[in-house]
Design a protein around this nucleic acid. Structure first.
Length: 533
RNA sequence: CGCGGGAUAGAGCAGCCUGGUAGCUCGUUGGGCUCAUAACCCAAAGGUCAUUGGUUCAAAUCCAUUUCCCGCAACCA
């Protein structure tokens, strides 16, 4: 039976080019989506650019542009990068799309009408000269602990976490004037109400979610969930569908995660399918491919929002939360300039090499260090020496001696069993989000293929026993055909070429059988060896 | 006691959730093969799985302890 599967990737913030950190966080989603599609399930795979919030407005101000210009520039760049890396989103949109904005306002209104969003009036710092309310971050002053210069949320000198009213000699960070208190009202999401619901969710997902997702979520729950502001003093973002909030916008943390839902709805609408049936399906399987810094938004806030909307939407079943990929033990950072963009690395090494490496060596369970040398080693060993070599040694032989025609033979029965087992084991691993182990499994199969070739010694068989030779090569073709499926979620371009070699079309997640003689098409080398400098 | 992650062969890492012969890649040594991109296959050497204690018939794996290493303003997966 067809399963409903929602796969999502975290929404990148549209103020910088995507880098390999984004890649390792988002790629698992693509592999999972491709796998389920091959399996014949009903897949919706979505993401988009997160375009609102203060960092973009600040950047725009600095560069003399509008926030929309900044956001759309990076959104377009990100679309190109993702395409380049082979992402197969059913839709990659942005939080600036009218569809998203409209739906978010609808959901916001529902939460408000349900009484899960409430108004709170409080005194807030106001800068009389800049004519605006100041957030904690926009207030500077002297740290009460160390006497150093500090911002309102944290002291840069001693790292103490602060409340902005603890600061001495408080000033507006823009103009330096002394802020005064004025009454201001904001809307709050009553997160505290959902403590029990989230606790139950975590308990149910104990054996499914990754360890980092569970630990991080439990930490927040043990501290007790606190209500969060849902509105912000800002003019860039989604308008508040409540009277008296014309000067404010919906806080990004609430609307960005709702993008999963709004975009899912849009995809299904375009397909002419029912969104409601899909999203309330109690058996819906959902994957959220994210980085570890994004965990609480997906395991706590997002489920709480879904509960608060109250339409009985399915809560996340799988959190694919990766660790960080560092550069020589340092966190990648824009200011340090030690980033590698997706564009650069794909241009340099090719889409599939990068995809292979990022899954096989990515930070699935703990931080890893990126090393170009490791990437080259892995490329040469597994893609050239393993997969590429297996195909090339067969093809060269057949081309040389038999003019590119493989005669029908009998496929080795041990290999058939191994093949079927590999399909089911890899499927299980991918569904569990264990992509590294899944890919390892497939490459074990590649290794078995080379062993089979060596042990069969076709170069001797060809002289002594043509039946045996034909059985060997036919078995090899069978393995190539099945590898073109098994590897398809990971390295789709390469598997297309493998299929072209054999002239096969099937793309399902199940054993491919061959019949009759096969005329090989010329596809050249799958991968070229890279020399280490 | 701020929070979190880590410590496994010369290097880089997997295994730990769901205890039961210690595995992969590179490197080293020896052999095989010649179909193949100095590719492929086989074998060997190399580890008291950081420390100490506990649970268990059994611990790299679970619990606790100690030591050492790394990350934790903003941008940011």
């Amino acid at each position: 039976m067809k399963r409903n599967v929602l796969v999502t990737g975290a929404w990148p913030y549209a103020n910088y080019l995507l880098h390999i950190g984004h890649l390792v966080a988002l790629l698992p989603g693509d592999v999972i989506a491709r796998y389920y599609r091959m399996n014949g399930d009903n897949v919706v795979y979505v993401s988009g650019s997160d375009t609102h919030g203060t960092p973009i407005t600040e950047r725009a101000k600095k560069e003399g542009k509008t926030p929309a210009e900044i956001a759309m520039y990076y959104h377009n760049e990100d679309v190109k990068s993702l395409e380049k890396a082979g992402f197969s989103y059913d839709m990659y949109t942005s939080t600036e799309s009218d569809y998203h904005k409209e739906k978010v306002m609808k959901y916001f209104k529902e939460m408000y009408d349900n009484g899960n969003i409430y108004e709170k009036e409080e005194e807030q710092d106001y800068c009389p000269k800049c004519n605006k309310f100041l957030s904690d971050r926009e207030i500077i002053g002297t740290c009460p602990h160390c006497g150093g210069e500090a911002k309102g949320d944290q002291c840069d000198s001693c790292l103490a976490s602060l409340e902005s009213n603890e600061l001495l000699n408080r000033r507006c960070s823009t103009c330096g004037s002394t802020p005064e208190l004025r009454k201001n009202k904001h809307l709050y999401l009553e997160l505290s109400k959902f403590q029990k619901d989230i606790e139950n969710l975590i308990k149910e997902r104990e054996s499914i979610w990754r360890k980092n997702a569970l630990n991080e979520s439990k930490k927040f729950l043990s501290m007790g969930l606190i209500d969060r502001a849902a509105t912000r003093q800002l003019d860039w973002g989604i308008k508040i569908p409540v009277d008296g909030y014309e000067d404010k916008r919906i806080y990004v943390w609430i609307e960005a995660v709702l993008g999963y839902i709004t975009t899912c709805e849009r995809v299904l609408e375009e397909r002419g399918e029912s969104f409601k049936d899909f999203i309330t399906d109690p058996n819906l399987i959902s994957y959220y491919s994210i980085g570890k810094d994004n965990i609480p938004f997906h395991t706590i806030i997002f489920p709480a929002i879904l509960k608060a909307i109250g339409e009985n939407m399915s809560l996340p079943t799988h959190i694919i939360s990766c660790e960080f990929m560092n550069m020589s033990d340092e966190k990648m950072s824009k200011s340090k300039g030690n980033l590698i963009t997706i564009n650069d690395i794909v241009d340099k090494f090719g889409k599939d090499t990068v995809r292979y490496f990022m899954i096989a060596n990515g930070p699935e369970k703990k931080d890893t260090n990126f090393s170009e040398n490791d990437l080259i080693m892995a490329h040469n060993k597994f893609l050239v020496g393993g997969l590429g070599n297996f195909i090339n040694r067969n093809v060269s032989f057949i081309n040389k001696k038999f003019d590119g025609v493989v005669s029908e033979g009998i496929v080795n029965s041990d290999i058939i069993k191994l093949t079927k087992d590999t399909y089911s084991e890899v499927a299980k691993l991918i569904e569990a989000g264990e992509l590294r182990a899944a890919l390892d499994k497939v490459f074990d199969y590649v290794s078995e293929a080379n062993k089979f070739y060596d042990n069969s010694t076709p170069w001797i068989q060809v002289k002594e026993d043509m039946d045996a030779f034909n059985n060997t090569t036919y078995t090899c073709m069978y393995m190539i055909a099945n590898l073109s499926n098994l590897l398809r979620p990971f390295i789709p371009d390469t598997t297309d070429r493998m299929k072209a070699l054999l002239g096969i079309e099937e793309n399902g997640w199940n054993e491919v059988t061959l019949s009759g003689d096969i005329k090989l098409n010329d596809i050249g080398l799958l991968f070229e060896r890279i020399d280490v400098k």
